[in-house]
């Protein structure tokens, strides 16, 4: 029992992932104070303000991070905010930003260049974040497709962070630290962080110090935001799968420990005999 064939473990995990796709369970999702304060801060932004939606995540974590980016874009477009997307991750993040914003823009009838702009990626996050404090155009002379910023109507009135009302950071790595320490601390731009569940515990420290207005932790955080927005979607459905897999892992831990203690007792008994 202590050394069960791992294929059984894999089979059970596979079933726990697949079954909720076939039979949705729709467990009720409660909202954490961190997600609530994040939502409230975005809700309190003036309509038509400009917000940076940052895609600092790799394609590997897209299942967890993309629902957070989608709810962010939905909320901002619903408030008729102008969205600037950019990334510090060269690994495909500009394409992900493009695909998320265009998909959500199509839902809400927003137009590229007028309502949202994708700046793409530029090497050197510290230089990029500092540089945009003086001039966004000096760091990103063109958008992700090579169109000069001067040809995009939305960018006419945007020079630097002074015109940015909020930063909505979606990340799976520590680049959020630089946004906090350089842009929030240096330029006073309020920000919220949507982070993978594995990275989220670190950012409670920044919520506690009020350097970020709120925190979305993993798919649960995205599901909470979807509930607040009144539009349950991918993350809400994902909660069924995550619930079952978490329960399965807890069951494995309990069974594994029972087997360990029983085995140890038997070994001790054997030695004593």
């Amino acid at each position: 029992m202590e050394q069960i064939d791992r294929r059984w473990v894999y089979l059970l995990v596979g079933l726990a992932v697949v079954i909720p796709f076939i039979i949705p369970m729709k467990f009720p999702v409660s909202v954490s104070p961190e997600a609530q304060s994040f939502y409230d801060a975005v809700e309190a932004l003036p309509d038509s303000c400009t917000v940076m939606l940052v895609f600092d995540y790799y394609p590997s974590t897209v299942a967890e991070t993309e629902p957070m980016a989608v709810v962010g874009a939905r909320h901002l477009f619903r408030k008729h905010c102008k969205i600037i997307t950019l990334t510090n991750i060269p690994y495909g993040a500009p394409s992900m930003a493009e695909s998320v914003t265009r998909r959500v823009a199509a839902e809400t009838g927003k137009e590229y260049g007028k309502d949202f702009v994708n700046l793409g990626y530029k090497y050197g996050y510290v230089s990029v974040l500092k540089g945009m404090g003086q001039s966004i155009e000096s760091i990103f002379p063109t958008d992700n497709s090579g169109t000069p910023l001067s040809e995009l109507p939305m960018m006419d009135s945007i020079t630097n962070y002074r015109q940015i009302s909020f930063i909505f950071e979606v990340a799976d790595n520590a680049t959020a630290d630089y946004w906090i320490s350089i842009v929030n601390a240096g330029y006073g731009v309020p920000m919220g962080v949507a982070m993978t569940a594995v990275m989220a515990p670190k950012y409670y420290a920044y919520v506690g110090s009020k350097q970020i207005v709120g925190l979305l932790g993993g798919m649960k955080g995205a599901a909470e935001y979807e509930i607040l927005l009144g539009q349950p979607d991918t993350a809400f459905r994902g909660m069924d799968i995550q619930s079952l897999v978490h329960f399965l892992i807890i069951a494995f831990v309990i069974v594994g420990n029972i087997a360990f203690f029983v085995g140890r007792a038997q070994r001790r008994k054997g030695r004593a005999a």
């Binding site: 467990f27 932790g217 619930s243 978490h246 892992i249 807890i250």
Partner: peptide
């Protein structure tokens, strides 16, 4: 782990 999922 329990706290992070709705059913837990």
């Amino acid at each position: 782990m329990l706290w992070r999922v709705p059913i837990g």
